[in-house]
Design a protein around this nucleic acid. Structure first.
Lengths: 231, 231
DNA sequence: ACCGTGCGTCAAGGCGGCGTCAACAGACCT
DNA sequence: AGGTCTGTTGACGCCGCCTTGACGCACGGT
């Protein structure tokens, strides 16, 4: 996965008590917290800080809750979790139909709110998190998601075993990967000593990808230990 | 937008009273309703009918609710709204962390449930319906929204299974899609190894769409791994 | 110098996966 | 009931990939 960074939460609440409680609890769970105390500040804060999720208390001093939601949804699709003291059904329906993702009534359990937060982040995360894996070298590029390798614009075909080996090396780029580890992951636990396989397949990869296969610049041998991929 | 068709809802509840009430209310709102009365039937029903959203009552006779959620999340990302009589915080957290999208406690207002349903469908809709529902190749065009394929102006009919396979490949255009992934999404989680299906159906698609079926230019095989659609 | 070890290269099978054809059962329509 | 369409399953030939062996080479130790 790509994101080790903590999720950023925008907490919108005019009650300093609740805002403070949320900040403490969320920070303790590793979230990065930004706060806003009214609707206009909330809209501004979203534009500026780009949070991963918004916790929005209804009953703000300046704007109606639904207005805030609509103001956000006009241009942004960040998940919104609404907090409200009112358990009225119409309020919920209005907020949800305006574009809120969830609606929690006060008093609420912090555990529950955190779980709903995780759910919201998880949902929005998996759609966006795909686009990472693209590794480049001087002579070829590797797309881990598409399982494609291009060299001088033309696509190079790798077989299943070639790809498994290549992927393992690329995912550990810059680091040495031992023979045992490579054999283990590509061929299985019972091939730990068949280092001949490695020689054959590394040679094939070099022949397909290195500009000068006999003088490898990216798929390097560490004699007696293993192999290393250098971007 | 894409969906004029009604959303399909799978209602999972062992209490015939509630199941009936939900069916009536949802049908009245224009939803297409499918029901299952226990967990195993629910898992099967998802694989077969491909609902747009699942309403899952906890406390089923055969499986624990969390088991059902995990069984689904293993291979499918359809939104799940949990219904439960228990207002316990730990239950909510467990269900949400297992992969549920929302949690509603009984007794619930039908208006609220409907609003939460709309919210769930809306969310999953915008990530899936990524605007460009029209994909072209040199020899045929695919309209994902209209579920139609045209070749040389004339429309080509695809069967249900053919279409599911094609759609999955097209939505991942350019990327390699694993055999397991294809079998999972098209035939269901228990067909992991039936790669023969893939060969038969890919062959049919090629026969219908490729100018030279024995020399495919768009539906490409990656031996040992899977298939890839290249526009 | 000699030998051993580890690495790189090449080529020759064996076999598993793939494509294809075809038969069959069940669903659906008329 | 009859017919068509679809999904499932089996048989079979073929190609390509994995495996395996042989050999040359570089390096270091004795």
């Amino acid at each position: 996965m790509s994101d080790k960074e903590p999720s950023k939460v925008l907490v919108v609440d005019d009650d300093p008590q609740i805002a403070r409680a949320l900040r403490i609890n969320l920070s303790a769970r590793g979230y990065q917290v930004v706060t806003a105390h009214d609707g206009t500040a909330a809209l501004k804060a979203v534009a500026e800080t780009r949070p991963d999720v918004v916790v929005l208390d209804l009953g703000l001093p300046d704007l109606d809750g639904v207005e805030v939601i609509e103001g956000l949804r006009g241009w942004n699709k960040v998940p919104i979790i609404v907090l409200s003291a009112r358990d009225d059904s119409t309020d919920k329906v209005q907020a949800l139909d305006a574009g809120a993702d969830d609606y929690v009534t006060k008093p609420f359990g912090m555990d529950e709110l955190l779980a709903r937060l995780r759910a919201a982040v998880r949902r929005s995360g998996l759609s966006a998190a795909d686009a990472d894996a693209q590794v480049e070298t001087a002579s070829f590029t590797i797309d881990l998601a598409a399982k494609k390798v291009r060299r001088d614009g033309a696509e190079v075909h790798l077989t299943k075993t070639e790809w498994r080996l290549m992927e393992l090396l690329v995912r550990n780029r810059g680091r040495l990967v031992t023979q045992k580890q490579l054999l283990h992951e590509v061929w299985g636990p019972s091939y730990d000593t068949e280092s001949h396989y490695l020689r054959v397949y590394v040679a094939q990869l070099r022949r397909k990808l290195e500009p000068e296969p006999s003088r490898p610049r990216h798929l390097l041998t560490e004699p007696g230990m293993g192999y290393r991929f250098e971007p």
